[in-house]
Design a protein around this nucleic acid. Structure first.
Lengths: 208, 208
DNA sequence: TTAAATCCGAGACGTATTGTTTTGAATCTT
DNA sequence: AAGATTCAAAACAATACGTCTCGGATTTAA
């Protein structure tokens, strides 16, 4: 199998720089497929997304989709993750609390946008497809977590946080409520919510 | 339509106590269907659950299932919610913090049990089926929330919490991290986690 | 310039599952 | 006994699946 999707691994070509013979993969088709996947996912949700519909919308043959992605999950994961690769950076304001609250506000903004539906589809589908959930964690969650660690560490260095702070616990306390409201939808998810959470969790950690 | 599922509304019979003519609904079949649904859901997850399999496992005709439940979602919601109706009471220890942490421990225990798979299926499916999510909120979340309000109010009355506490914010801060780890699965969800969250969120609220 | 390799879109194919409908029998009220 | 409603079983059309074949396009290497 020559699966070349980002999910299944194998980023670029074989180690030598030479291009193999034969017609190269159509970058145009690849992007059209990912774009149509996002588009349909915004409308229909994960379970109702059919490969047939994606192929039709992208003006592409079904076989082309099946050639490059082993299943629907890998396709959806690639579509979302490639679109969110360079997003949601952490600011450097000089205060942990405002660094965090500002980034949390950005996340909420994404969740409220049309991209939110895609994230929900990804996490919803992930509840019955471990690979889908793992792709979300590895490609979306952890990269941001690593940045968050650094942000919190700066707070420790500045004395705003105790040196023995449990960083994972703290991050789950900050982001858990956001994901909670986002996924359960029992209460509205406004950007102000970010500040309120920080008020609860980072009470004694410098200025708001 | 004469849908009689608990999800779609209309709990029992028409207001008058008289039984309508005709063969009555088979209570045996109804329970067998719900039981089989739970059983299969524990094994397979929501998207792989077929009505055919449920009917076969319950020794019941497909048409019988379709007659009483409009779709898979309603069936799953009924199956889970009927099974969790009387669960997860709040204790009265005399301290908000330990009242909350003990109930949170119970919730985590449920999430870790075989019933956790059913909840995950419900919430996962709910991401693309609004009715499913609403059923979860109305039949599971809100009843417990109402108990939680009372628990927190007792804490206010005892002076452990400020009188102007934002109860919804506080509850989301306590339970959000649990649902977060449960649904994203980026870190282990142990019962000790409940105590740690309380340590962060209820720092100054009486004994642990 | 030619041959080999790989890709492309279009669409047919058999399979599986869906939700609906029909049939004949069973059960209950009046 | 008559009328209503249920039941299990099975046939049904519709949809999506994943695979395959076809003719043609694009690229490298000989």
């Amino acid at each position: 199998m020559t699966q070349n999707s980002t999910v299944t691994g194998r980023a670029s070509n074989k180690s030598n720089g030479k291009r193999p013979p034969g017609r190269p993969r159509s970058e145009h088709s690849r992007q059209a497929i990912l774009r149509s996947t996002l588009k349909l996912l915004r409308q229909q949700g994960f379970p109702d997304l059919s490969i047939e519909a994606v192929a039709a919308d992208a003006n592409v043959s079904k076989a082309t989709v099946y050639r490059w992605w082993p299943n629907r999950g890998a396709l959806v994961a690639d579509a979302f993750l490639e679109s969110a690769e360079q997003e949601l950076q952490f600011p450097h304001t000089g205060s942990v609390r405002s660094d965090m609250s500002r980034q949390m506000r950005r996340l909420i903004r994404v969740f409220r946008s049309s991209r939110g539906k895609v994230v929900a589809a990804l996490l919803g589908g992930g509840q019955s497809d471990p690979e889908l959930l793992e792709a979300f964690r590895e490609r979306f969650l952890w990269p941001r977590r690593r940045q968050a660690y650094q942000t919190l560490q700066r707070g420790i260095d500045r004395g705003e946080l105790p040196a023995d702070t449990d960083l994972d616990l703290l991050l789950d306390s900050l982001y858990g409520p956001i994901y909670f409201r986002f996924l359960i939808r029992h209460d509205e998810l406004t950007e102000k919510f970010a500040d309120k959470i920080c008020g609860v969790v980072l009470k004694n950690c410098g200025p708001a």
